[in-house]
Design a protein around this nucleic acid. Structure first.
Lengths: 105, 105
DNA sequence: CTAACGCGTAAGGCTAGACTTACGTGTTGT
DNA sequence: ACAACACGTAAGTCTAGCCTTACGCGTTAG
């Protein structure tokens, strides 16, 4: 399942990262988030849209409200991508100890 | 240690992510990276500056060139931050299942 | 010494996107 | 029924930042 936008892009903005961090702690409604942030409610809606498109959050209607929560699948995808970076880096780091690899090209 | 800019911001841009991915595979010079990318060499320099400020890469002079490589410490910091998200999300996910049984579809 | 290479930085143009206000839709309570 | 609430979206403004060309500094080869 391909996401509309990369999770990296979604978590790039500071405000959006704050929203995500709050959702990590506990699910919230849109206005609940907006009340705790220095931006307007529509701005929060737009941020949530980006996070949703990235697969990082899911939403469910709850009466008049709409509760957003973190989507474990999207977070896992990001984690997997980062782990590839990590393992490759560690592998290169390990081989770099005994010899000094030079890359002229 | 605090970095000038968040690693999330540094990896937000697609071009910068490509540069980082190449450095994950093997250290490179600036022009080496520029040759493989559809942007100019100064653009690569500016991207590397952002990655360096975020603590994700380190550079070392090598003759006329300047070799950039991934900094394991910066990558580990990002990984740690993501792991916090992950563990918190899993904890909330687990209690959500225990308290309210998920209805099968 | 001089020329060429590799790199970083400055200055400017231009697009992406973060934010606002205004409005429309669906839901709940009176 | 109407009114209030929660939310999403449209339209427009404005800033951040990505990319370019032009230039200056250090390093190496001839």
């Amino acid at each position: 399942m391909a996401y509309a936008k990369s999770g990296w892009t979604a978590l790039a903005d500071a405000t959006r990262r704050t929203i995500f961090e709050r959702l990590v702690d506990h699910p919230s409604s849109v206005s609940g988030l907006a009340r705790a942030l220095p931006v307007s409610r529509p701005a929060v809606s737009q941020h949530l849209r980006v996070l949703k498109d990235a697969g990082l959050v899911v939403d469910a209607p709850a009466g008049k409200q709409r509760i957003y929560r973190v989507d474990p699948a999207g977070l896992a995808a990001l984690r997997a991508e980062l782990d590839v970076f990590w393992s490759k880096t560690m592998a290169a780091y390990k081989t770099a100890i005994e010899q000094s690899p030079e890359e002229p090209k």
